[in-house]
Simulated assay, not measured.
Amino acid sequence: MTEHAALVQGEAIPRERVNALLEAPRRGAGNCATSHNESAHERQRRRWATQVVVADELARRACQERGLATPDEVSPARILAVAETDVANLGSIVAATLAHSPAARTLLAELEGEQHVPETAVQDYYDRNRDRFLTPEALRRGVDPFGAPAPQDFVPYTHARDGIAHELRRAATHRAFFDWFDRARAGVEYATGHEHPGDPSHPDHEHRH
């Protein structure tokens, strides 16, 4: 059996790094209905963990290329603290990577600093999503934001602006991180049993992240 889980630019990523993540305590262990289902589940879990470890390695390299200092220690147990909303918004691989990898979080912060949100985009968001900016009093009265509301029924743009800009910058940062990850892992070679969970070349594949 091969001793590596993947090759990143020809450099082996040891299986031990994947095993360390797999050995972290997890919720719901042992709840599979049958041994067959449990076996398929564990195989997919190993593939999923490989993606997280590979993402950590790629992030380390990206940080090094950018001259960014990152802590060396990763935190396998932190994947248990991933919020369900983060999984829904980011996908389980990216959400777990950001929880597990200091390098990934450092890279994300660097990417956030590179995002510019034009004022016109903030204003446009406010104008197109008026229902999100009704005042509490207008909500209590059941005001229809698309009917004939009064100007005072809405939170003023000056009060909403910073929150909108933050939300748009965060979304742009996540897109930049996804784009980086897709490019960075394009040349990764995976050992048998460590393929992407959605790779259709193996029978357990799942088209989700």
Score class of each variant (00 low, 15 high):
residue 22 L to I: 05
residue 168 L to M: 12
residue 144 D to K: 09
residue 10 G to A: 11
residue 181 F to H: 10
residue 74 V to Y: 13
residue 99 A to Y: 03
residue 105 R to Y: 01
residue 93 I to H: 10
residue 196 H to W: 13
residue 61 R to T: 02
residue 191 A to Q: 07
residue 10 G to R: 07
residue 90 L to R: 13
residue 120 T to R: 12
residue 148 A to L: 08
residue 8 V to I: 15
residue 204 D to W: 04
residue 21 L to H: 00
residue 188 V to I: 09
residue 205 H to L: 05
residue 142 G to E: 07
residue 190 Y to F: 15
residue 82 V to E: 02
residue 37 N to R: 10
residue 104 A to R: 03
residue 155 V to K: 04
residue 160 A to V: 06
residue 37 N to I: 10
residue 144 D to G: 09
residue 124 D to N: 13
residue 163 G to C: 01
residue 1 M to Y: 10
residue 100 H to T: 03
residue 170 R to A: 15
residue 96 A to E: 10
residue 39 S to A: 10
residue 202 H to Y: 07
residue 102 P to M: 06
residue 182 D to L: 08
residue 123 Q to M: 06
residue 47 R to F: 03
residue 131 D to Y: 03
residue 116 H to K: 11
residue 80 L to Y: 00
residue 121 A to R: 11
residue 179 D to H: 13
residue 87 V to M: 05
residue 75 S to G: 06
residue 146 F to D: 15
residue 141 R to E: 08
residue 14 P to E: 09
residue 33 A to G: 03
residue 53 V to L: 05
residue 207 H to D: 14
residue 4 H to G: 00
residue 32 C to L: 03
residue 88 A to I: 06
residue 33 A to C: 05
residue 178 F to D: 07
residue 27 R to C: 00
residue 98 L to Y: 07
residue 111 L to I: 02
residue 152 Q to H: 11
residue 13 I to F: 04
residue 145 P to A: 09
residue 194 H to F: 15
residue 198 G to E: 12
residue 12 A to C: 09
residue 56 D to G: 01
residue 126 Y to P: 00
residue 198 G to K: 04
residue 175 R to A: 15
residue 78 R to Q: 12
residue 196 H to R: 14
residue 70 T to N: 05
residue 90 L to C: 04
residue 134 L to R: 02
residue 98 L to W: 10
residue 6 A to P: 05
residue 190 Y to K: 01
residue 196 H to T: 11
residue 138 A to G: 03
residue 98 L to I: 11
residue 122 V to M: 02
residue 3 E to N: 13
residue 3 E to F: 12
residue 201 S to F: 01
residue 147 G to N: 11
residue 35 S to R: 12
residue 186 A to S: 12
residue 2 T to V: 08
residue 126 Y to T: 02
residue 169 R to K: 15
residue 30 G to C: 01
residue 39 S to W: 11
residue 12 A to E: 15
residue 89 N to G: 07
residue 1 M to Q: 05
residue 70 T to D: 01
residue 33 A to V: 08
residue 149 P to N: 07
residue 134 L to K: 03
residue 14 P to Q: 11
residue 91 G to N: 05
residue 199 D to S: 12
residue 137 E to T: 10
residue 50 T to D: 00
residue 148 A to M: 11
residue 4 H to L: 04
residue 72 D to Q: 11
